[in-house]
Design a binder for these strands. Structure first.
Lengths: 172, 172
DNA sequence: ACACCCGATGTCAGTCGCTGTCATCAGTAG
DNA sequence: CTACTGATGACAGCGACTGACATCGGGTGT
């Protein structure tokens, strides 16, 4: 992060990263599959928080409500990271390949959430659709939270955006 | 596509692609920004079809209904491509970087759709959420269509998945 | 007809991400 | 003390991508 913020992502080589960590470049690639992945080490923690939150939801909760509980749990952690999360987001936003990787990670979150919903007895199709829509709302909420440093805490924003989602997609 | 199907994406070099087209490798990179992009040349056509479909929807249609009209138009084109679309999807599914690029293109479709909805007078937030949810449904429908070559036409699958989406996200 | 220009292409050299291979060097078990 | 194992370093090499310069062909103006 120090190197990326100071010199920019593209102008930082993997050799630079390894040197800063006191390792050889080859060793870097033994810990991370590619240059991008250093920035996405924490996403696994988000996934597990959301999945556990879904599993812990009341058994009679609707799919999207269970998912909302999981997303709130993840949002609480991200909110705790505060400015660090914002700095990381700025770096990612600066580079196309990083944005693509971020989308891939979100896609992974969708898959994990859908699997957690299926575990609760939700049908495959409903689980996948809920997860896609819910995670999309989560992403919208996160962007909104990043843009307003003095705004409400992330979990609240997530709740608000999920409510908007329900309004917009309401059946006729 | 010939090279990718025959030897696989990773084992095909950009020099191979250029040679097959009768050009130098350098010239390839003057037409495409990177190796992946050859496979995503047609996505621009999809975007414009969807956007035009949204603009052409009745003025009093709800956001998600207007989007549905656009997505149906795009689906009709993809359905017409038939096996070619399926082969392309198989290549993309075989490689991580290609899957990431595909997600990025879908993200572009979301942005274009949201902009088209805003053009209709829909609020920014509602437009973005509708677009995210609708395109997610489109993707689910496409995957289902790819998996069932003898199944119903893609536009019908899109309609069916959108109906499922409305059910699942229904407000309490 | 001739000089001119410009956009597309070829060529070459170089950087950087990433990988296979082999040697080295702990620390640990026996 | 030795043998084994896991992590690391060192090195060579491939392939994606870029910058710089030369070339070529087709249209324009005179």
């Amino acid at each position: 992060m120090e190197l990326f913020v100071e010199h920019g992502y593209e102008r930082t080589t993997t050799a630079d990263i390894a040197a800063r960590a006191g390792l050889s470049e080859r060793t870097y690639f033994r810990h991370f599959p590619d240059k991008r992945e250093v920035l996405f080490d924490s996403t696994h923690a988000l996934d597990t928080l959301v999945v556990e939150g879904i599993a812990a939801a009341p058994a009679d909760a609707a799919p999207l409500d269970a998912l909302a509980a999981g997303l709130r749990a993840g949002a609480a952690m991200l909110h705790g990271l505060g400015d660090h999360a914002r700095a990381r987001t700025a770096v990612i936003a600066s580079q196309g390949e990083l944005r693509e990787r971020e989308l891939a990670k979100m896609s992974g979150l969708v898959a994990a959430s859908a699997a957690a919903l299926v575990e609760r007895g939700v049908g495959e199709a409903a689980a996948l659709l809920s997860a896609e829509a819910g995670v999309a709302a989560f992403r919208v909420a996160f962007d909104r939270w990043v843009a307003t440093p003095a705004g409400p805490p992330l979990p609240d924003v997530v709740d608000a955006v999920l409510a908007e989602l329900r309004q917009v997609v309401a059946p006729a």
